[in-house]
Design a protein around this nucleic acid. Structure first.
Length: 653
DNA sequence: TTAGGGTTAG
């Protein structure tokens, strides 16, 4: 008896004596085969499948390839590779189709290289002749592995050509996809070569090429190809939308999303995921809500909503300042993944609900029975970040230890970065410095940046200058380098070290750096209004500046002095500094919100591209109290909810 | 023995 048969003998014994109407002596073998075939086709569970499998064996059909094929189909679609392998191993002379099913299943598994191993076994034992399906699946396995199976993929390519399968559209498309999936300039050219040589392409071939261009930092080529496409389907549009959203072209992504609607191509769940990610990036709550309502309206009966679509909604709401809506989506999800929990934990944290975030994480840890909901490396980044924001250092250390000791994950530089950030914010600067110097990898920009932020808050000019030296050894984007030097110069200015201020300024000039302009946005009636510091281009500029003046005057009456410690270094006269402060883009956006958004309980939502300065922060607190308006400011890192004179960040950002 | 391969893209 073959190994696999023993496993089912238990079932078999059960069936020899038991009722289960359908087990009869094979009075007519052909009829029984047909009956089993249709039963396999209608099979609903692995349990039922095991029963049918047992019957198959009892009746001596274990070598009937077409029955085993149906059986494997079910195993494969329910992700039970173990049972599939067992059934396959029983067949003495497996057909090509049976082998293809196995290769296909392996290619889609977490270990696509097993597909190639299976193929080698298939060749060595000459169990069946490969055909175009075989090669298509194998190329799919190479594509799934990214670059690690590229060498083998190229060998396959050669074999495909010599074996005469190079004319098959599926094989060709899979070749394009494999080279495009590796996504570097050399393989993209190979993908394009195969693509150009195809006598007939279908929409999938075009989409694979499109995705390849977008995957490799080349949007122009993607747009060129997109324009040339003879036919575009939902996948083509989604590829473009997702590609744009992932490369910082979120506005363009939403433009494409609207064009897609105009072209009357129906968006599906994956399209919505991509569009929502663009909304999240832009903080476009109105569009996000609109998409949510479309999803609810368009949900067809019986269609299960993708977990990732709900995750995208959570992420969108959290990033658009509507954390309660994010939480509602999270609560109502019928199924959750690790990503759902992680997204929610991170969302709560950026809104100043770090304690709730940690509470949620503990709940997650208790859900031991739930599969696919275990914390992973990213979850721990969110968790450590929550500890950082709440100043829970002991807990932070405990969780940090759990990463490796309980979950067997090697802490990455991001985890160390969180720890340095946590210590820096708590003012434990020497500990943070020590950790940065002794951590097992070279500290990166984020690590030193966190420490620098701590130095600024604690006014430790000496350490700040050492940290900036480390930062300048790295390859930085000019805008970032400028930002760090501005922090250093402000630290010197606050300490009254004007010579040093001048020296930093000279350094910036020599490096050709200037601080990127601060920009703030506010949505009013679906229209986006954008402001830079000192901006007078707005249609209602005079009204806005009148309101800015009123806010400043009322604050002064209340005895609130402007905080000039974070003003740009080249404005050294006190009066000028105050004037400059008053016209920060955040203040202009808030003032415009005050005069143009009716007070019906909705907050004034402002998005800013930099971190809010301490003067704008205290102004927003003042406005929330004096004008009785809730203000939500999303800056580079977090949300500030200003209500009745207080901020959700507890003045800690 | 007619029956069979979730072929490929987001």
């Amino acid at each position: 008896m073959a190994r696999g048969e023993a496993v089912f003998s238990e079932f078999v014994r059960g069936f020899e004596t038991r009722e289960n109407g359908f087990l009869l002596q094979p009075s007519n073998s052909r009829d029984l085969q047909q009956r089993l075939f249709s039963m396999l086709q209608g099979c609903k569970s692995m349990r039922e499948l095991a029963r049918l499998h047992a019957q198959l064996l009892v009746n001596g059909f274990s070598q009937k390839n077409f029955l085993i094929t149906k059986l494997l189909s079910f195993c494969v679609s329910s992700n039970n590779l173990y049972h599939a392998t067992q059934a396959f191993d029983m067949v003495k002379e497996p057909s090509t189709i049976l082998c293809n099913q196995m290769i296909g299943a392996f290619s889609r598994s977490a270990t696509p290289e097993t597909a190639l191993r299976f193929y080698n076994r298939m060749r060595a034992s000459a169990m069946a002749q490969p055909n175009s399906f075989t090669f298509a699946f194998l190329l799919g396995a190479c594509a799934a592995a990214g670059t690690s199976l590229l060498k083998q993929g190229e060998q396959l390519h050669a074999r495909i050509l010599s074996a005469g399968f190079g004319v098959d559209v599926y094989v060709q498309t899979n070749l394009v996809n494999m080279y495009a999936a590796a996504a570097d300039s050399a393989t993209i050219e190979k993908a394009r070569k195969v693509f150009d040589d195809m006598p007939h392409r279908n929409v999938v071939s075009w989409n694979a090429m499109l995705a390849g261009y977008l995957r490799s930092g080349d949007a122009p080529s993607a747009f060129r190809l997109f324009d040339q496409m003879p036919e575009r389907n939902a996948v083509s549009w989604t590829t473009m939308i997702a590609g744009c959203a992932q490369s910082g072209r979120s506005r363009q992504a939403l433009t494409l999303f609207r064009e897609m609607r105009r072209a009357r191509i129906g968006a599906d769940q994956v399209t919505f995921v991509a569009a929502l990610s663009a909304c999240a990036e832009l903080g476009d709550l109105e569009m996000g809500r609109w998409i949510h309502s479309r999803i609810d309206r368009g949900a067809s009966v019986g269609e299960r909503r993708l977990v990732s679509l709900n995750n995208a909604l959570i992420h969108m709401y959290a990033k658009c300042g509507a954390v309660q809506d994010a939480y509602r989506v999270f609560q109502e999800m019928p199924r959750r993944s690790t990503v759902s929990w992680t997204t929610m934990i991170a969302g709560l944290t950026i809104h100043g609900h770090g304690d709730d975030a940690l509470h949620l994480f503990r709940t997650m840890q208790c859900m031991k029975e739930a599969k696919g909901e275990k914390p992973d490396a990213v979850t721990f980044i969110a968790v450590l970040n929550a500890c950082c924001r709440t100043g829970r250092i002991d807990e932070g250390y405990r969780f940090f230890e759990q990463i490796s000791q309980v979950y067997g994950i090697r802490p990455s530089i991001e985890h160390y970065g969180c720890m340095v950030d946590m210590l820096s914010r708590a003012g434990r600067l020497s500990e943070a410095w020590q950790l940065a110097k002794t951590m097992p990898m070279q500290p990166n920009e984020a690590v030193w940046g966190a420490l620098l932020n701590g130095c600024r808050a604690r006014r430790d000019v000496k350490l700040a200058s050492q940290v900036v030296d480390r930062l300048m050894e790295l390859e930085l984007e000019p805008a970032h380098a400028a930002g760090y030097l501005v922090i250093l110069s402000n630290a010197y200015a606050a300490a009254g070290k004007w010579d040093e201020v001048r020296r930093v300024r000279e350094r910036m000039v020599k490096m050709g750096l200037s601080k990127p302009p601060g920009r703030s946005w506010v949505h009013v009636n679906g229209v986006l209004h954008s402001f830079v510091a000192g901006d007078r281009s707005h249609r209602r500029a005079s009204d806005i500046y009148r309101m800015v003046g009123e806010i400043a005057a009322r604050a002064k009456l209340e005895g609130i002095a402007p905080d000039t410690s974070q003003v740009l270094l080249d404005v050294e006269e006190e009066e000028e500094r105050e004037a400059f402060l008053q016209h920060h883009s955040e203040k202009l956006a808030i003032a415009f919100g005050l005069i143009s958004i009716p007070d019906v309980g909705e907050p004034i939502r402002v998005t800013s591209n930099l971190c809010i300065c301490s003067d704008c922060h205290s102004t927003a607190k003042f406005v929330s109290k004096a004008f009785g308006r809730e203000i939500v400011v999303r800056d580079q890192n977090l949300f500030h909810h200003f209500v009745d004179g207080c901020c959700s960040c507890k003045d800690y950002w």
